[in-house]
Design a protein around this nucleic acid. Structure first.
Length: 450
DNA sequence: TCTGGGGTCCTAGGACCC
DNA sequence: TCTGGGGTCCTAGGACCC
């Protein structure tokens, strides 16, 4: 039976059965969303045990905005996304612990948490750094789903000290609703399941419209203006009404809220674009600095590109001034270049990026941000074709790969092109409250004195 | 003084073709 | 005065997610 479910899920048959016999089967199929609570802040707490009960905030690059915060910090009125300098007063007054975001550390911890989830459930799907969908097809026949998930949450807490909330329901959108209840109410012990229709209706009536996955600020306002103020009301509208007033994404959300799964995030993820961009620690009007930043971002994009074994057909470079400084002249521009043959070679891509900077640089402008976008990605790094204009292409890819390996082994930017500049240039981002890379850098590993 | 970064999908509308 | 019609492709912009 389990096998049959998998065959159905992964085949076109699954779609063709959707409106017919599958409806009967779907009554049993449950999906879980496992969501790490205040993930970035929780990771920091793992490495700073003294912070128990204290409010914690984690900042974006350049220490610009709040990107993660614990419930204690939320209780102080601090909001996700708020500029750091605006809430600095509250933070200092309330002894809030503040950390610069250390994505390497969080990614390493995420891997550990996700691997424990995979030990529990065979078919999982990482949705973001702190969320994973778990397909519970087949498990419910022999076990108590809530118990399986509770055991998993306990295991994760024991092995990693990361708190996780799990929502179980028939659709991903409802699972997300359930996970919010699991997070909010201690009584669920980390796991909430929406099983019956009355549970579904109750959960929706108690949720906020803007808490629903797929309903952003715009749709929230539209729904309000149409007289709809809670998710149950929305779910109870007729399908043709929803289609008349909204587009496909909102209609899908409506179906999911009514227990009909239609959001498929399970397709093999091969990115369609790769972007690296940063705001600078300090504005610069120097072309050399701008080029160094763009070369650094190009190298980072190339690394991601090769790690998913792709090559890029197009590169774009953009630069812009500081949009918050109305007293300064504003300027922004973007330029693109198509490669005759898709490339994954850092040298070739960086060279193209430098030419694009020459095109869009303008003297006298204080630049605040730059970025590199690789697009038209195709599978395969090696495109060694007849009439290739770049000689020894294979060797160049091998060189790039060797650089990737060294940087992976000895730390980022151990080796790179001279164009990327030095480590202490002014444009580089500021991180004043950084936790060391305890899990990924041997030189920064934690020391314990006994 | 200080204001994030990286993605996806969908749609409307323009350009172009026959 | 009335100013083809149907199709494809591309792009910009909107909306959403974490």
């Amino acid at each position: 039976m389990l096998k049959l479910f998998y065959v159905l899920r992964f085949s076109k048959l699954y779609l063709s059965l959707h409106s017919g016999s599958r409806l009967i089967l779907s009554l049993r199929i449950m999906v879980a969303l496992a969501d790490c609570n205040s993930f970035f802040a929780s990771v920091e707490k793992v490495f700073h045990p003294g912070l128990k009960g204290r409010p914690v905030c984690v900042l974006s690059s350049n220490d610009g905005n709040i990107v993660a915060l614990t419930p204690e910090a939320k209780a102080l009125g601090i909001k996700r996304g708020a500029p750091f300098f605006e809430v600095k007063g509250v933070i200092e007054k309330n002894n809030v612990a503040v950390f610069s975001g250390n994505i390497m550390l969080y990614a390493a911890m995420s891997k550990r948490v996700q691997s424990i989830m995979r030990r529990t459930v065979a078919h999982t799907e990482a949705y973001s750094i702190d969320e994973q969908f778990l397909y519970l097809d087949g498990y419910e026949q022999h076990h108590d789903l809530v118990k399986i998930m509770r055991d998993m949450v306990e295991q994760i807490a024991l092995w990693t000290d990361i708190p996780v909330s799990v929502g179980i329901a028939r659709t991903k959108t409802l699972a997300k609703v359930a996970s919010k209840f699991a997070k909010k109410y201690k009584g669920y012990q980390g796991v909430c399941m929406i099983e019956s229709d009355s549970q579904r209706r109750k959960a929706l009536s108690m949720s906020g419209l803007d808490d629903i996955w797929g309903i952003g600020p715009r749709t929230f306002a539209r729904l309000n203006s149409l007289g709809i103020v809670n998710p149950l009301q929305f779910a109870d509208m007729r399908g043709d009404w929803v289609q008349r007033h909204f587009h496909k994404p909102e209609y899908q959300t409506w179906l999911e809220l009514n227990g009909q799964p239609c959001i498929d995030t399970s397709e093999i993820i091969r990115r369609q674009t790769i972007t690296t961009s940063r705001s600078f620690g300090k504005m610069t009007d120097s072309k050399e600095q701008l080029k160094a930043s763009v070369a650094t971002f190009a190298a980072s994009c190339c690394n991601t590109l090769r790690s998913q074994n792709s090559a890029a057909g197009c590169i774009s470079v953009f630069v812009c001034s500081n949009r918050f400084r109305e007293d300064l002249p504003q300027y922004g521009n973007i330029a693109s270049l198509n490669f005759s043959i898709p490339s994954a070679d850092t040298i070739e891509i960086t060279k193209a990026a430098m030419e694009l900077v020459d095109k869009i640089y303008r003297p006298g402008i204080l630049f605040k941000k730059s970025g590199v976008i690789l697009s038209q990605l195709v599978p395969g790094c090696l495109h060694n074709v007849l009439f290739d204009t770049v000689s020894r292409r294979n060797e160049r890819i091998e060189l790039s790969r060797a650089m990737d390996m060294m940087n992976h082994k000895y730390g980022v930017q151990t080796v790179g092109l001279a164009a990327s500049g030095t480590k202490d240039e002014e444009w580089r981002t500021r991180k004043d409250h950084l936790t060391p890379n305890y899990l990924t850098d041997i030189d920064q590993i934690m020391t314990i004195n006994i």
